[in-house]
Every structure is written in structure tokens, then in C-alpha cells.
Design a protein around this nucleic acid. Sequence first.
DNA 1: ACACAAATATACCGATCGGTATATTTTAAT
DNA 2: ATTAAAATATACCGATCGGTATATTTGTGT
Lengths: 231, 231
Amino acid sequence: MKPGRFFVLIKHFLKINETLLAKIYRTVYFCVVNLKHMNKAEKTRQFIIEKTAPIFNVKGYSGTSINDMIEATGLTKGSIYGNFRNKDEVALAAFDFNLKKMFSAVQAEMDAQKSVKEKLMVYVRIYENFLTYPFPEGGCPILNTSIEADDTHPPLRQKAADAIYSWKNKIEALIKKGIVDNELSAELDPEDVAITLIALVEGGIMISKVTGKLQYRKSIMKAVKKMIDDL
Amino acid sequence: MKPGRFFVLIKHFLKINETLLAKIYRTVYFCVVNLKHMNKAEKTRQFIIEKTAPIFNVKGYSGTSINDMIEATGLTKGSIYGNFRNKDEVALAAFDFNLKKMFSAVQAEMDAQKSVKEKLMVYVRIYENFLTYPFPEGGCPILNTSIEADDTHPPLRQKAADAIYSWKNKIEALIKKGIVDNELSAELDPEDVAITLIALVEGGIMISKVTGKLQYRKSIMKAVKKMIDDL
DNA sequence: ACACAAATATACCGATCGGTATATTTTAAT
DNA sequence: ATTAAAATATACCGATCGGTATATTTGTGT
């Protein structure tokens, strides 16, 4: 979403500085992307969320400053505070944005599958190499937010917890369907399976991200695969 | 390590304020705990690490301020900066402290077991209810530090990664021993098993901590138990 | 074209950030 | 008891923090 080669050409052709270029880019971006559906304020609001979401996901809530947000959007403090009451409100909206991005990447793939096992295998495929999917920069927002907020930021903590609940419920519902359809064994506990699957995926993301070893995540996804096969 | 009932009595008896009480407590603490083994500076250094380690583990690196450290130790800024070059140095030492606390809690239990499976089951027992063990406040320091530092703080990131390597190697060695002893199947991949076990444990800590549901961690530990049983 | 309102930018606030220079106190050798 | 050195406390630094009041610009209905 940053000014690409075309805008760099403009910059050199018009001999303008970065700040002015950013302004021009924003203007064009607004014109192209935002058609008549949103009013101005709502557009700016969305623009701010979109631009700051990756920052919050990479640097965390307390690691992201208002200045980071100004830099990322090219807007000014007044404009940001004209659309959000405070930093918290942006952070919460940014979390929702990142979460939706992650979930919808999975959902799109999942809808294309028929059987329950095939649907569950989508997790293996996506998390094994999520760099090739439209995944939020900075990794899993649930994981990042959980760890930072669990002891320090109740509203964010709640959002992260809710995300886990809905993720768990989604898997649980899938498994129950699989049992009803006689595809999966009736003996297994859907909730146990769901929460274990989530733990494996999240643990795998953490480990491979901090070590930089993709191999570790592949090992773990192999275990997930086996777990689904054995259902 | 906080002033206990005895010191509260002193406080009321002498009618002194919290600050003075803290000073008295520190003095007594120093006298009692630190015998001749360390020189003064080294004692203070250890004291600072001990007191700030839980803060770093709860609030994170960027969420912990020098003022937090002053409050936790009862010392002054000059004293802290006389023993550490900067905040980073304290944070790194605090991580080591928390890590050692966690690992030694496991190691003590593990040494008491004979078979490999029994040793591995220690993880189940400890992480299923780690509130009853001398576990670092704020949860697993590897998890907390990994998530915060992976994109933002290279030296801390490295420490967290190294902790995972050594943890993995320890489990791997155990499993290899189990294979040699004909206790475990020779077909399994020790590294895969080790890294999967770590992922399950860490994922479980994250999920149960952010949701507040101990049950989730128990579900996951049930899966770990089954995994070990099936080795 | 004009006026009013909405949106954005500018300028500023006190508080706190991490860090340092210096003063004071404590420790330890003589 | 004296004194030099080590350790700790005090006072201060510029930068940045999140946030706000106000000025300016932009959009919109007439």
C-alpha cells in the first residue's frame, strides 16, 4: 500500500519531497479506492485502521506510539484524534481488522472444501506456509494480543479471548458435524480436539517466528495433520 | 519476598510510612539472605534482578519503565544505573532469572522420575497446574519474550530462541535415550516430537491465560498425555 | 459565490520516558 | 579514627509520551 514505483517516478519528475509525495499518494489512493459508499470521516477512519493495524501487530500496543501512527498514515495528530477518542480505540479497531484478515483467509479456503477433514486440513496448509496467504503482518494477532494484554489491558484481553472462543466454536461445530455425518469417530470430545488444534497452531507460530526456523512449524503441522487423520 | 506480617506489625508499632518500612525491610533482607559470598554490588545486582524479573514477565520489556523498577526494588535510579548499563541489561538478566526458575522447577521433578515416559509426564503435571509450583509470575517467559521481542528486540529474541533450542534438545535427548533403552518406538522422529510437545505446552499456556479457563489447559495436557503414552 | 459545518492541521500541554552528572553516604583498608 | 574508593541517592537533561485547544483547510448545501 506504500507509494510504488510509479509514485517514485512522479517524485523525481516533479522534484518534490517525501512529505508532499505522501500527500499526493493519499489523495490518489482516496480517489481510487473509496467510491461513494463511505463519507469522508468513515473513509479516514478505515484508512487509519488499515495503516496502523500492521504496526500494532508487530510492535504491540505499548510499543506503538501516536507518532508511529502519524508516520504510517501520513496524517496529523489532529486528524487521528478527530476520528478516534484515543489510542485504545485505534488499537481495538486494529485488532478487529487483523483478526478479520486472518479468519477470512482461512474461511475462503475452507469454503472450497467438502468433507470435514478436508476443511480442517486447511489449517495445516495455511499455517504451514502463511507467507503466501494474505496474512496479517507480524503473525497471529490473537497470539500477539493475548500475550501482551492478558495481564495489562483488559479490553484487548477480552477481544483476544473472544477470538479464541469463536475460533474454538467454529472447529467444534465442524467436528460435531463430522460426527453426525459419520465421517468422524463419535467417541472424541469436540471441544478437546478444537482447543488442542488451536494450541498446536499457535505454539507453532510462536516457535517458528522467534527461531526463524520454518522447519519447526512444518514439524508441528505434521502433527496436526496426523491428529486430523486420526479423528 | 514482600514485607510480611511481621513487618506490618513493625510499621504500625513504629508508626512509620511505607517508604521507610521498605528501607528497613531491605536492610534486614540484605543481612539475612546475603552472607559473605557476594560483595555488595553483586548483591544489589541480584536483588534488582530478583525484584524486576516478575515485572518484566508481566508487563513486557517496553511496558516496564525505570520507575517500575525503582518502585519494585525501593532503590533509586542512581543505584540501578550503578549496577547496570541500561534497561536492556536488566531485562536480559531478568529473562535469564525467569527462565532458570521455570526450568529448575521442571528439572527438580524430572530428576525424581526413572523412565523416559515418566520424565516427560512431568510436563503434564507441572503445566496442568503450575500455580502450585515455583513458576515465574506472568507465565512462561519464553512465550512472553518471544512474542514481544521477535520483531522488535534482537538480543531478547535471541535469548528466547536459545531457550527453545535448549528445551527442544533436552526433550530430544530424552526421547533418543528412550529409543536406545527400547522404551520408545524407534520409528518416531525425536525432534518432531520435542517441538510438537513444546508447541502444545506453550499454546496451552497462552490460551488458558488469556481466557482464564484452566479447563482449556487441562484439555491440552490430556492431549500431551496421550501423545506421550503413544510414543 | 457564499456561508456554514465538517475535517484536518498546527501548536501546545503536563507527564513520563531512558539516561547522566554530581552530590552524598556507606564500605573497607589503613 | 582517617581516608580513599565504592556504592547509592539526588537533581537534572532532552526527547518523547498521550492528549487537547485552537487555527486552518476542505467539503457541501444553498
